[in-house]
């Protein structure tokens, strides 16, 4: 699936219309056009913050890495190669920076420490979370129980709407691994959420599976 999705910049940029597509923005940026650079920033910053938060909960680290990413991008703009998708390139670069940093800090690892194999255990953990109030929060809580890499892959696939192939590229893993992260994550979500749906007090799960 390769859908070109127009993302609205958060700040109004009248110049945005000047560039018809990613390639043109990128070209203008490479030539030192600061408006193109800002456009790239505004167009992608929310994606980067959200994606970063799937990799680490350390907001100041995410902030530092995004700053470094854009400063380095600007400094080396003349040597930057043409990219197919600026967003994918930025997501991948941010991931690389975060991972490289996290590898040196033992407090937060990317190992699958939170892997939930025991669904009952997952369910009780879920119920302990105060956020289990509305259907949206229920899903958010269930997602948080997934191993980081599954959360990350599911975020890329369903929020960013990347294809399996693109998820693999951004995460720097092979196609099979990316599919496995996504599929296993979905399966765990289904189990966790379904189990809860059987519990009488949690009315919200009915809403969740309600016919649209």
């Amino acid at each position: 699936m390769n859908v070109f999705k127009q993302t609205k910049p958060l700040m109004s940029l009248p110049d945005a219309e000047r560039w018809a597509n990613d390639a043109q923005v990128w070209q203008a940026f490479k030539q030192g056009n600061r408006e193109a650079f800002e456009f790239l920033y505004q167009q992608n910053i929310q994606h980067l913050i959200q994606y970063g938060s799937k990799i680490t909960s350390d907001r100041s680290l995410i902030q530092d890495c995004i700053q470094d990413l854009f400063v380095e991008l600007w400094d080396s703009r003349e040597n930057a190669s043409q990219v197919a998708s600026a967003k994918h390139y930025l997501l991948k670069s941010l991931r690389y920076k975060l991972i490289r940093y996290l590898q040196y800090t033992p407090t937060e690892t990317l190992e699958e420490t939170k892997f939930v194999t025991d669904y009952e255990n997952g369910e009780s953990q879920l119920l302990q979370q105060e956020t289990v109030r509305s259907q949206g929060h229920l899903l958010a809580a269930a997602l948080k129980l997934l191993p980081k890499r599954q959360q990350e892959a599911i975020h890329l696939r369903y929020f960013e709407e990347l294809s399996n192939e693109e998820v693999a590229q951004v995460m720097g893993v092979n196609y099979q691994s990316a599919c496995k992260f996504i599929y296993t994550g979905l399966k765990t979500l289904r189990h966790t959420l379904q189990l809860i749906s059987l519990l009488p007090p949690v009315w919200s799960i009915y809403q969740f599976f309600k016919i649209l």
């Binding site: 958060l10 800002e38 920033y41 505004q42 910053i45 929310q46 913050i49 959200q50 907001r59 995410i62 902030q63 995004i66 700053q67 854009f70 400063v71 600007w74 259907q135 949206g136 929060h137 899903l139 958010a140 997602l143 948080k144 599911i154 975020h155 369903y158 929020f159 709407e161 979905l186 979500l189 289904r190 969740f208 649209l212």
Partner: peptide, 25 residues
Amino acid sequence: LVVELKNNPASATDNDLAPVIWRNI
């Protein structure tokens, strides 16, 4: 499930951080 994942509130926009980062850049 697909709709919810797309509209996941945990992925809500963060309007505070973006301008701060831009100023620093």
